[in-house]
Amino acid sequence: MTDRRLAWALATPALLLVALFLGLPILSTFGTTFTTDEGVFATYEAFFTSRFRRAVLWRTMEVALITTAISVVIGFVTAWVVARAPRNVKSLLIVAAVFPLLTGVVVRSFAWLVILGRNGILNGFLEGIGVIEEPLSMLYTQGAVIVAMVYLFVPLMILTLVGVLDSIPEDLTDAAASLGATPVATFRQVVLPMAVPGLIVGAVLVFTGSFTSYATPQLLGGERQMMMGTFLHQRAMVTFDWVGASTIAAIMVVVTLSTVYAMSRLAQRLNPVAG
């Protein structure tokens, strides 16, 4: 067998798995949205003219953007501390960040259900110290969804950035300082530009992850805070409107893929090494 044949033979099973069980199903899902009796773009028109559906899309965008912004800030500061910590402390902190990441999303969302619930721990605590008299209803609000999503994605951001910040030599920041740069100037002119590629990768992961999440908005947002993921599930499995669900699916794919594409282009342009 020639090398070329052998190479294709070895790659074919994996290629078939992706083509048959991802390519075809996804394409057929998209296909059904364009072949309704009402016209080619009718289902998309219906989506964007419905106030409710538009609201779901914007809410999902909003939650994903806020989650990303908060995760970037929290993740960056924490990763900086972790990257500059002594070796043994550092590996301990990395374990502490990996552990929640490897714990399932249902378990992690459940934790916030316990904390934010009406008879939950936070209400109990606040009542105990006399700050409130009536329990606050925190569940099924946008805030609850965002807190749980930040909780979900901060470890990912920390781990993405620790690697990047670790690779910035300490000599570099020392040199900037010895040349008279203030800590703020060192951060803005040395650290930040070098961390940009990592920040973009992390931000893309957090944005697409929260934009397409299902379990967290389902548990903590409920019907009131419907997001694209929960909306897709409701359309498909509760109302059995498969064309409507396929439309939501197509919009989700377009949003995530264009975000990934745009941000990777941006990363290429901003990469200080590639110039």
């Binding site: 994996a14 290629l15 992706v18 069980f21 991802l22 390519g23 075809l24 199903p25 996804i26 057929s28 899902t29 697409t208 934009f211 397409t212 299902y214 993921g229 897709l232 599930h233 498909a236 498969w242 669900a245 396929s246 699916a249 989700m252 794919v253 995530t256 893929l257 990934v260």
Partner: peptide
């Protein structure tokens, strides 16, 4: 890139498409 498609396509979309087609 083909082999990483399963992480690029939103999981929930993949789940729905598999349910519908397969």
């Amino acid at each position: 890139n083909v082999f990483v498609l399963p992480v690029l396509v939103p999981e929930i979309v993949l789940g729905f498409a598999l349910m519908k087609s397969v």
